[in-house]
Computed example of a mutant assay.
Amino acid sequence: MSQQVRGVIARNKGEAVEVTTIVVPDPGPGEAVVKVQACGVCHTDLHYREGGINDEFPFLLGHEAAGVVESVGAGVTEVAPGDFVILNWRAVCGQCRACRRGRPQYCFATHNAKQKMTLLDGTELSPALGIGAFAEKTLVAAGQCTKVDPAASPAAAGLLGCGVMAGLGAAINTGGVTRGDSVAVIGCGGVGNAAVLGAKLAGAAKIIAVDLDPRKLERAKGLGATHTVNASGGTDVVEAVRALTDGHGADVVVEAVGRPETYRQAFYARDLAGTVVLVGVPTPEMTLELPLLDVFGRGGALKSSWYGDCLPSRDFPMLIDLYLQGRLDLDAFVTETITLDEVEQAFATMRDGDVLRSVVVF
């Protein structure tokens, strides 16, 4: 029997979000209903509200979430009622060409729940990233539920569902940061600071945080940055990074802004044969121009990181274990906890740069 819960929707492009009643159907084959305990306010949710993802309004927002499985549909074996889970938007299919080649972290056919959650009048909702967790309960594909240790704080654990995993994975999985490396991170919001934390976890010897905002640079220092570069006031970021790396440039540069000018900085701030990782999300109209001879002559690798190249079933339990051991400070990303009714204000706070994450706690 379907349930009615409170949830946050974006009804029309650019309009303030609203809290309304959501109808959640019983789980069908391969699906699960999850009682959401916490959900982070991610910039991607704002992109949805602004029409920057697609125009399939109305959207049920929220996707960085953790909670408890309430019920499952036929054929579900991955999780059971009562399991504490982190929701993910990479429910791998196991059958596409990436999965068959043993690379499920690049699955090309990830899936979501087949049924739709709706408004009371039957209007179908588009759940953000196939999750829609700014709601007391949500319907997802069972493969979107990753079981982890229930001792973890839901507010902290849920952030692995998107932004923190994206940054950690950009450094560790995509960038391949290892012991002794020098790493520069350009853009120190939630994702960038997670890349700083990932570089520290991987054993990088030098971690250089780059941003325009001194508040973000201070947070980066607290998460493991050994040096900071304030890019305001005409600072030459490339020269600053080179000066901190014996004139060579960093082994790995993570670009967490998603703009052509910061990508160029990343490209030239890396050492010869170094790696650039783009994890910042550009807008559709952005283009990039680089001298092809420089691309050839500098060698190395230019990579893009989508969801930190993570495999949730592998990475989430491991990272939660590190968190519970005190080796991964996920709590540092929870700047404030809020209610469903405060999501619109959280978007404004996020724009002002005052938080790493506001987290809705139920």
Rank of each mutant, 00 (worst) to 15 (best):
V5N: 11
V68K: 13
L61P: 05
S153F: 01
K216C: 07
A204F: 11
K221D: 00
S313Y: 01
L120W: 00
L46M: 14
V252Q: 06
V361S: 12
C39N: 08
A16E: 13
R219N: 13
D213C: 02
V257E: 06
I22V: 15
V359T: 05
A141K: 12
F57C: 13
G73L: 11
A231N: 09
V34Q: 12
L129S: 09
G62H: 01
A98N: 13
W306A: 11
T275Q: 02
R314F: 06
L168H: 11
Y48D: 05
V34F: 10
G67M: 11
R100F: 02
G308M: 08
T123K: 02
G51I: 14
G187A: 12
R314T: 14
A135H: 13
Q144R: 04
A204E: 12
V33R: 15
P154V: 08
A151E: 13
Q37V: 00
L223C: 03
G234M: 10
G94P: 11
P317K: 10
E289F: 02
R90L: 05
A74C: 03
P81G: 04
D149Q: 01
L201R: 10
L288D: 04
V281G: 10
Y323K: 05
D121K: 11
T228P: 04
T118V: 09
E218Q: 15
P29R: 10
S2Y: 01
G222Y: 05
T349L: 07
G7D: 08
D181K: 13
N112E: 15
V5Q: 07
K147E: 02
N54W: 04
L87T: 10
F57V: 12
T339S: 15
K216M: 01
G233Y: 11
F333K: 01
D83Q: 02
A209K: 06
V334G: 02
N54D: 15
D329G: 03
Q345R: 12
D26S: 15
L139H: 08
L311A: 06
I131E: 00
G234E: 09
V17S: 09
A205W: 07
K200F: 01
G249L: 07
F333G: 00
P29D: 10
V19W: 02
F316Y: 15
S71H: 01
G102F: 07
G176M: 09
K137D: 05
H111K: 13
G234C: 10
L244G: 07
L223Q: 08
E239V: 00
A266C: 12
G187Q: 08
L293W: 03
A348K: 14
F267V: 10
A199Y: 07
D121Q: 13
F362V: 12
L319K: 00
V252R: 05
V238I: 15
T235Q: 15
T337C: 06
E56Q: 14
C145L: 06
R314Y: 07
A133G: 08
C39F: 01
V360T: 04
L311I: 03
D354I: 03
G192E: 09
G187I: 11
L356V: 04
R103N: 14
Q115T: 03
P58Q: 08
E261V: 07
Q4T: 15
N12W: 05
G222T: 08
L288Y: 08
A266T: 08
E289I: 02
G308A: 09
T123Y: 00
T287D: 14
I207R: 07
A113V: 12
G40C: 09
R97P: 08
V85G: 02
P58L: 12
L356E: 10
Y323R: 06
R219A: 13
G224E: 03
P27Y: 12
K206N: 14
